[in-house]
Design a protein around this nucleic acid. Structure first.
Lengths: 217, 217
DNA sequence: AATAAGGTGTTACGCAGGTAACACATTAGG
DNA sequence: CCTAATGTGTTACCTGCGTAACACCTTATT
């Protein structure tokens, strides 16, 4: 319980609650925690969303798997982030994608009506919540914007330019495997590999397993 | 003013407000209306979002235009729908797409802080708002789900099956032009045309300018 | 240290779909 | 009602990328 409280305290969304409130909600079942093993499914595609969830620790991915088994990663969320924020108040609150624990994770769930209660009494909680779902929505738009109907080259450039800015270096450290990068862009791994090789041959980049170095401006 | 009030009254989001409130907000500048001509740009890509907007009348499209001039329609909104709901509370409130009036439209704008006031004092307004943005978010997910990395055939089937269910008939009335359908799916018009021809030759469908008839189950 | 499990690069093959260039049909606006 | 603008169908051409099948790494697991 103490550990849960400590983790909960840290999340921006729950910062506006007092220790007493959190402990009380944990006690009366308003807040429920659940632990998931690595690669455990947190929510299946089509499942009903009953709670707003906050990731207390670990790493969670939202992905779509089509009939032919192709995988596309829609989003990755780490500790302090929120799940189901856009779903819980919808008229059709069914998860449109599969949610999986990429690493062992602990999730805190809050029932719909308790969330409303918090909105009503705690304006800061509401503001934080609104900011979070806005960001999520923007992320989805960005996904469409950057990756829909673009060539692999364009997706890769888009990713590299973003990372260059974020990491502020031409020698980009790949936090993820190339396989994961391919899934995020939504292309075959081999196709990504081929495109990277082309870019290398054209003198645009150099790369190894861990880094990509940008040779252009 | 009377006309504006009448239109505003009708929208689900403003239903929880009294006539007096609406008139007062229109009077003191909290609510601002603006009219746009057909094909007028309501918001440019990159513009700051300062207001939550409600479409009082007309039809509005959100579209992305890439460097090479290709157009993809992300969403279409008609009277009573909301614009900017996911943007206004984001930390980076810049329109990620272009918003255009497809038909002459009247828009009602509410400043950010006034929206918060309404949330605080009017719980029904908050609930309606949350439902609306949830639906918008779901729409974006659906877009990704249905149209990303799918063949034209799959996109078309997805669209046809949806419309068959919605219109409850095998003779689907195309509410939009084939050009618009191509833009919604995000493919070249000629490619859509080619695919439809193939489907016709395979005996799956029959079609003319206004309708598509489904010959399969 | 040994073995399994997963990530990586490469390449030949084929096809879905973008491009461009038509002619023709339909709609909107004066 | 006429003309301009916009939508529609078609087809030849070409390319980007998915598929499949390898061999070779690198990282977990015992």
């Amino acid at each position: 319980m103490n550990e849960t409280l400590r983790l909960a305290r840290r999340t921006p969304l729950l910062q506006s609650l007092t220790d007493e409130e959190i402990v009380s909600y944990l006690g009366d079942g308003s807040f429920i925690t659940a632990a998931y093993a690595k690669n455990g499914v947190i929510h299946f595609d089509g499942e009903v969303c009953r709670r707003l969830e906050i990731i207390l620790s670990g790493k969670v991915v939202v992905e779509r798997i089509d009939e032919s088994g192709n995988l596309m990663t829609i989003g990755e969320f780490i500790a302090d982030d929120m799940l189901g924020g856009n779903l819980i108040f919808s008229r059709n609150p069914y998860y449109p994608m599969t949610v999986t624990a990429r690493e062992p994770s602990v999730i805190l769930g809050i029932g719909r009506e308790r969330v409303f209660e918090l909105f009503y009494h705690n304006h800061e909680f509401l503001r934080n919540y609104l900011t979070l779902i806005s960001e999520h929505s923007m992320m989805l738009s960005e996904r469409i914007r950057h990756y829909v109907n673009k060539s692999i080259r364009e997706c890769v450039m888009s990713y590299l330019n973003y990372e260059r800015k974020r990491q502020n270096t031409n020698r980009i450290a790949l936090g993820i495997s190339k396989k994961a990068l391919a899934e995020r862009i939504g292309v075959q791994r081999t196709s990504l590999s081929r495109e990277l090789a082309k870019m290398r041959d054209e003198g645009l980049i150099r790369f190894d397993n861990k880094t990509i170095e940008l040779l252009y401006d």
